[in-house]
Simulated scan of single mutants.
Amino acid sequence: MTDRPSALDPDIARRLRRDGAGLFPAIAQQYDTGEVLMLGWMDDEALHRTLTTGRATYWSRSRGEYWVKGDTSGHQQWVRSVALDCDGDALLVRVDQVGPACHTGTHTCFEAGGPLPARVGDRDAGPAAEASR
């Protein structure tokens, strides 16, 4: 990350909780279907660029630079809305995704990894049924 100050609105910057590297996770979600597309990382400047350009901009931890989603692949993310969670430590970026969101070529980054074995909960069974298992 760069050490230069960001042009991010100070009121927004005060609400953010960052990790030790100054980053916070940004979840990209398809605005009209609710499908979760990917998780990226942002710092204050990436968020500022996202809010002011209408294009999702992330910080690449592996390359150590900013990247605008789709600049090289053509698979752009056009921002529809951005929301900060209640703790200030994660963002939800609702986008209009053009093409696949994942660098592997899959529609979402959660297709390539596949499902994990998880017990499916049953809210109708109630706590008593859960305790007896």
Results as ranks from 00 to 15, higher is better:
Pro25Arg: 12
Pro115Thr: 14
Ala56Tyr: 09
Leu116Phe: 06
Ala56Glu: 01
Gly88Glu: 06
Arg61Ala: 00
Ala131Gln: 10
Val95Gln: 03
Asp9Ala: 10
Ile12His: 02
Gly20Pro: 02
Leu51Ser: 06
Val93Arg: 01
Thr57Lys: 00
Ala129Asp: 15
Val36Ser: 03
Asp44Pro: 00
Gln77Tyr: 01
Arg94Ile: 04
Gln76Tyr: 12
Asp71His: 00
Leu47Ser: 01
Arg61Thr: 06
Pro127Ile: 14
Ala7Trp: 03
Asp3Arg: 00
Gln29His: 01
Ser132Met: 12
Leu37Glu: 01
Trp59Asp: 04
Arg63Ile: 01
Ala7Tyr: 01
Ala129Phe: 11
Arg49Asn: 11
Asp32Pro: 01
Leu91Phe: 08
Pro5Arg: 15
Ser73Phe: 04
Glu111Tyr: 03
Val68Ala: 07
Asp44Met: 00
Thr52Ser: 11
Trp59Arg: 02
Gly99Arg: 08
Ala125Trp: 10
Pro10Gln: 07
His75Thr: 10
Tyr66Leu: 13
Arg119Met: 14
Ala118Ile: 13
Arg17Ile: 13
Asp32Gln: 12
Gln76Phe: 11
Leu91Thr: 04
Arg15Lys: 15
Arg55Thr: 07
Gln30Glu: 15
Thr106His: 12
Asp43His: 08
Ala112Tyr: 11
Val36Gly: 01
Thr52Met: 03
Arg119Thr: 15
Thr104Ala: 13
Ala118Gln: 13
Arg18Met: 05
Leu92Val: 14
Gln77Arg: 08
Gly22Phe: 12
Gln30Trp: 05
Asp9Pro: 05
Val98Trp: 02
Arg18Leu: 15
Leu84Glu: 02
Ala46Tyr: 02
Tyr31Cys: 03
Cys102Pro: 03
Ala112His: 14
Gln97His: 10
Leu8Tyr: 05
Ala46Asn: 05
Gly121Ile: 06
Phe24Ile: 11
Leu92Ser: 09
Arg94Ser: 13
Tyr58Asn: 02
Val98His: 10
Thr108Met: 07
Gly20Ser: 08
Ala21Met: 10
Trp59Pro: 00
Phe24Ala: 15
Asp89Leu: 07
Pro100Arg: 07
Val68Trp: 00
Asp19Met: 06
Ala13Trp: 08
Pro115Trp: 13
Asp87Gly: 09
Glu45Lys: 00
Gly74Arg: 06
Tyr31Ile: 08
Thr108Asp: 11
Pro117Leu: 14
Ser60Lys: 06
Met1Arg: 10
Arg18Ile: 09
Lys69Trp: 00
Ser132Arg: 13
Gly34Arg: 09
Glu45Thr: 10
His107Met: 13
Glu35Ile: 05
Ala7Lys: 04
Trp41Thr: 00
Ala13Ile: 08
Trp78Ile: 11
Gly20Arg: 09
Ala13Tyr: 02
Arg55Ile: 06
Thr2Glu: 14
Thr53Arg: 02
Thr108Phe: 03
Pro117Val: 14
Gln77Asp: 00
Ser132Cys: 09
Met1Lys: 08
Arg49Gly: 07
Ile27Tyr: 02
His103Asn: 12
Val120Cys: 07
Asp43Lys: 03
Ser62Tyr: 05
Arg49Phe: 03
Gly20Thr: 06
Ser81Val: 07
Thr53Tyr: 10
Leu16Arg: 07
Ala101Gln: 05
Ala131Met: 10
Val82Arg: 02
Phe110Tyr: 14
Asp89Lys: 10
